[in-house]
């Protein structure tokens, strides 16, 4: 970058070296702030200038991959999505996401979250396994049905919601906002028929009953997924199912693509990459 430094900012970084440090400790460094610098850019600058062994996770630097969730000035955020200037202070405190064990420096151990995510079956569950493995036609879904879950499907699994949740702070058995939000995403997908299976897990003590709408997950979500909304809607579904008031719906059928004259400017589908040709 050729941009001249605007001013100096101080980075407080929480560091932990496994096998060497007994507990994490804070370290302070000053770096020159250039226009448009994100917290992630700042960390790179810091690594370049004064802390070569500093470790963190990041990849896309554009809020897509969900690697760089960190506790920035007391709030879980994506480092790449946070301008230093938007913090409104010359002091940036960066710590690893709380509620996850620290592997090294700013690297949290997200595995427990992904294990729970998997336990809640975040995929389409249907009887027609053959069709799923080797699709011949399409599952029918209207744009309106898509809207029922589209918001929740924007989740990038960065773990910010888990770091902000007061229940996750004490209860490792609680599934947490991310896995619950994703379970709801598949429960409301019109192509899915797995509600009965997921219900078995969700009705227990790790399910949405541990949520009391402190609302933190939705406040910190960098993608606007609103996990709190998903969890409350999930409770509604589960309770109305218990009271036998839930509308039964069968998973969307397999349909032929619409017939009729085809507009000429639409390009043909690319060749298949999976299954038999």
């Amino acid at each position: 970058m050729t941009d001249a430094a605007v001013k100096q900012v101080t980075f407080h970084v929480r560091r932990f070296e496994p096998g060497v440090d007994r507990a994490p400790h804070w370290e302070s460094h000053a770096i020159p702030l250039t226009p448009g610098m994100t917290v992630l850019d700042g960390l790179w600058k810091l690594k370049e200038l004064s802390a070569p062994s500093l470790a963190w996770r990041s990849s896309c630097r554009m809020g897509i991959c969900g690697s760089c969730g960190m506790l920035i000035n007391g709030r879980p955020r994506l480092a790449c999505n946070t301008q230093i200037s938007e913090l409104g202070t010359d002091v940036v405190a960066v710590a690893p996401l709380p509620n996850f064990a620290i592997i090294k420096d700013l690297v949290p151990d997200l595995r427990p979250m992904f294990e729970t995510h998997r336990e809640l079956m975040p995929y389409l569950i249907r009887d027609d396994v053959a069709e799923q493995d080797d699709p011949t036609l399409e599952y029918w879904q209207s744009p309106h049905e898509l809207e029922h879950y589209l918001q929740f499907s924007y989740c990038i699994k960065c773990g910010c919601c888990m770091a902000a949740c007061p229940t996750v702070a004490t209860d490792p058995q609680y599934a947490g906002p991310m896995p619950l939000g994703q379970a709801q995403r598949y429960n409301t997908d019109s192509r899915d028929g797995g509600f009965a299976e997921r219900k078995e897990v969700l009705s227990g003590g790790s399910g949405p009953w541990r949520c009391h709408f402190a609302g933190e997950c939705s406040q910190v979500c960098p993608k606007g997924v609103d996990p709190a909304k998903a969890i409350q809607l999930m409770k509604r579904e589960l309770v109305s199912d218990l009271l036998r008031m839930r509308k039964r719906r069968d998973p969307a059928p397999v349909v032929q693509p619409p017939k009729g004259p085809r507009r000429e400017e639409i390009p043909a589908a690319p060749p298949r990459t999976a299954g038999e040709a």
């Binding site: 969700l202 009705s203 227990g204 003590g205 399910g207 009953w209 589960l238 309770v239 218990l242 009271l243």
Partner: peptide
């Protein structure tokens, strides 16, 4: 009893 029932 499961949490769903108790919560309801």
């Amino acid at each position: 009893m499961r949490d769903r029932t108790l919560w309801t």
